[in-house]
Computed example of a mutant assay.
Amino acid sequence: MLFLVISTPRPDHPSSLVDSRSRYWDWMRPLLQSGQAKSVYARAGRGAVALFDVDSNLTLHRFMNEWSDIIPAHFDVYPLLDEDSAKAFLATQSEGAA
């Protein structure tokens, strides 16, 4: 299951979060290595964007809680379809319209 997660941290002084931001990258590294996170980018200014590939909503929930324990933030979450899934869905729509 693919999810795009966009974080918007609390409006704290960025300099007060340097240690937390370093811990965030340490936390993210094993998720990237295992493939549970496909990519992650820091947003210009503040925040981050991560693409997770997880087995369940519960796993995503755990990751988001761990993330917010490191850097409290608001999260926007977008469920995604990979190309094969999107094409398979479109094929079922074409069949129904005919």
Rank of each mutant, 00 (worst) to 15 (best):
M1Q: 10
M1R: 10
M1E: 10
M1N: 10
L2E: 13
L2V: 03
L2Q: 14
L2R: 15
F3Q: 01
L4F: 08
L4R: 06
V5Q: 08
V5A: 15
I6Q: 11
S7M: 04
P9F: 03
P9M: 03
P9C: 02
R10Q: 11
P11A: 07
D12A: 05
D12H: 00
H13R: 06
P14W: 04
P14M: 00
L17A: 05
D19G: 05
S20P: 04
R21K: 09
S22T: 10
S22I: 08
Y24W: 14
W25S: 15
W27H: 15
W27Q: 11
W27N: 13
M28E: 13
P30W: 14
L32N: 12
L32C: 14
Q33G: 12
S34C: 13
G35S: 14
G35F: 07
G35L: 10
G35T: 12
Q36H: 12
Q36L: 07
Q36I: 01
Q36V: 08
A37R: 11
A37I: 13
A37C: 14
K38C: 12
V40F: 13
V40N: 03
R43K: 14
A44G: 09
G45P: 06
G45N: 08
G45C: 08
R46A: 13
G47W: 01
A48G: 08
A48H: 03
L51M: 07
F52A: 01
V54F: 01
V54M: 04
D55V: 07
N57G: 05
N57M: 02
L58A: 08
L58F: 00
L58C: 00
L58M: 00
T59K: 02
L60D: 04
R62K: 01
R62Q: 00
M64V: 08
M64C: 12
M64P: 02
N65R: 10
W67E: 11
S68F: 05
S68C: 14
D69N: 15
D69C: 13
I70D: 07
I71L: 12
I71W: 02
P72M: 12
P72C: 06
P72R: 07
A73T: 11
A73C: 15
A73P: 14
A73I: 09
H74Y: 10
D76V: 04
D76R: 06
D76I: 09
D76F: 02
Y78V: 06
P79R: 05
L81I: 07
E83A: 01
D84L: 06
S85Q: 06
A86H: 03
A88G: 14
A88F: 05
F89V: 08
F89E: 09
L90R: 08
A91V: 00
A91Q: 03
T92M: 02
Q93W: 03
E95Q: 03
E95Y: 02
G96V: 03
G96Y: 00
A97K: 01
